[in-house]
Simulated scan of single mutants.
Amino acid sequence: MVDVMGNLAFGLLFALPAWFVWNDRASVVFVAFAAVAALFLDINLEPCSG
């Protein structure tokens, strides 16, 4: 199993300033998008052999 906590933590760390810059709804949407985008780094795009 892939450990995704490091990618998620860095994604949320980089999205943290959004909480202080934008209003509530925009910051929540941006942080959610950043969390999902951080998880895309673990997607393996190579086709399965077999």
Rank of each mutant, 00 (worst) to 15 (best):
M1P: 04
M1T: 10
M1W: 08
M1E: 13
M1A: 15
V2M: 08
V2Q: 08
V2R: 09
V2K: 09
V2D: 10
D3F: 03
D3G: 06
D3T: 04
M5A: 12
G6T: 14
G6R: 10
G6D: 13
G6I: 05
N7D: 14
L8K: 07
L8Q: 09
L8M: 11
A9D: 05
A9F: 10
A9K: 14
A9H: 07
F10E: 11
F10T: 09
F10M: 13
G11V: 04
G11F: 06
G11W: 06
L12Y: 08
L13N: 01
L13P: 00
L13F: 14
F14D: 04
F14N: 02
A15C: 04
L16T: 15
L16W: 13
P17V: 03
A18Y: 14
A18Q: 13
A18L: 15
A18P: 03
W19L: 15
W19Q: 08
F20I: 05
V21L: 14
W22T: 09
W22R: 09
W22F: 15
W22P: 01
W22E: 07
W22Q: 06
N23E: 15
N23A: 11
N23F: 07
D24N: 11
D24E: 14
R25N: 11
R25W: 11
R25E: 14
R25P: 00
R25F: 07
R25Y: 04
R25I: 05
A26S: 08
A26P: 02
A26W: 12
S27A: 15
S27M: 05
S27C: 10
S27R: 12
V28E: 14
V28A: 15
V28P: 00
V28Y: 07
V29D: 12
V29N: 10
V29R: 15
F30S: 11
V31C: 15
V31F: 02
A32D: 01
F33M: 10
F33T: 11
A34E: 00
A34P: 00
A34I: 01
A34G: 00
A34V: 01
A34W: 03
A35G: 13
A35T: 00
A35L: 02
A35N: 02
V36F: 12
V36Y: 05
A37T: 04
A37K: 01
A38C: 02
A38E: 00
L39Y: 00
F40I: 01
L41T: 10
L41M: 07
D42Y: 06
D42Q: 11
I43V: 12
I43G: 03
N44G: 02
N44F: 02
N44D: 13
N44A: 03
L45R: 04
L45G: 04
L45H: 03
E46C: 03
E46W: 05
E46M: 06
E46R: 10
P47W: 06
P47Y: 06
P47V: 08
P47R: 11
P47E: 14
P47S: 12
C48L: 10
C48H: 02
C48E: 06
C48F: 07
S49V: 10
S49R: 09
S49K: 09
S49C: 05
G50T: 00
G50P: 02
G50Y: 00
